[in-house]
Simulated assay, not measured.
Amino acid sequence: MPPRPRPPKGRTATVWLLGLPQFVVADIGASLVSRQDSLVSVYYLILAASLALLVTGIILGATTLLRSTSRMLIAGIAVDILLLLDLFRLIAMNPGNT
């Protein structure tokens, strides 16, 4: 079986960018909401957007992985999955009690 081609560099970067930067924003939002209860609705809006971006990154990476292979792409998908699990932990926490 011939080796699979490498994915486009932009696709791998997109998978990484859909994971890390937006999760930092979600984490900062969680720390801000823990100090002020009035921002809870904004916090949940940030979490919903983060969830959508993480799922998009995982799906985009997985479909690219079907056609080509790259260690950086696999690492990006793994990071997105781990961040998704951590996002579920943030969602499970009650922002008013942190």
Rank of each mutant, 00 (worst) to 15 (best):
1 M>H: 09
1 M>G: 13
2 P>N: 13
3 P>K: 14
4 R>C: 11
4 R>L: 15
7 P>E: 10
7 P>K: 03
9 K>F: 13
10 G>H: 07
11 R>G: 06
11 R>P: 00
13 A>Y: 05
14 T>V: 08
15 V>N: 10
16 W>G: 01
17 L>S: 10
18 L>Q: 11
18 L>E: 11
19 G>L: 09
19 G>V: 05
19 G>Q: 05
19 G>E: 07
19 G>C: 06
20 L>S: 08
23 F>G: 00
25 V>N: 02
26 A>F: 03
26 A>Y: 08
28 I>Y: 04
29 G>D: 07
33 V>I: 05
33 V>K: 08
34 S>M: 02
34 S>T: 01
37 D>Q: 12
37 D>L: 08
39 L>H: 08
40 V>K: 14
40 V>H: 07
41 S>V: 11
42 V>H: 09
42 V>W: 10
43 Y>E: 06
43 Y>R: 08
44 Y>Q: 13
45 L>K: 14
46 I>C: 04
48 A>T: 13
49 A>H: 12
50 S>E: 10
51 L>F: 04
51 L>R: 15
51 L>I: 00
51 L>P: 00
53 L>D: 12
54 L>C: 04
55 V>T: 05
57 G>D: 06
57 G>K: 02
58 I>E: 04
58 I>R: 02
59 I>F: 04
60 L>D: 09
60 L>K: 01
61 G>W: 01
61 G>Y: 01
63 T>N: 06
64 T>W: 02
66 L>Y: 06
68 S>Y: 05
69 T>Y: 12
70 S>D: 15
71 R>S: 12
71 R>Q: 11
72 M>P: 00
73 L>Y: 10
73 L>C: 09
74 I>F: 04
74 I>S: 09
75 A>D: 11
77 I>D: 07
77 I>Y: 03
79 V>S: 02
79 V>K: 06
79 V>E: 03
81 I>K: 07
82 L>H: 01
85 L>A: 12
85 L>F: 15
87 L>K: 03
87 L>I: 04
88 F>R: 07
88 F>S: 09
89 R>N: 08
90 L>N: 03
91 I>C: 04
93 M>W: 04
95 P>M: 11
95 P>E: 09
96 G>Y: 11
96 G>N: 07
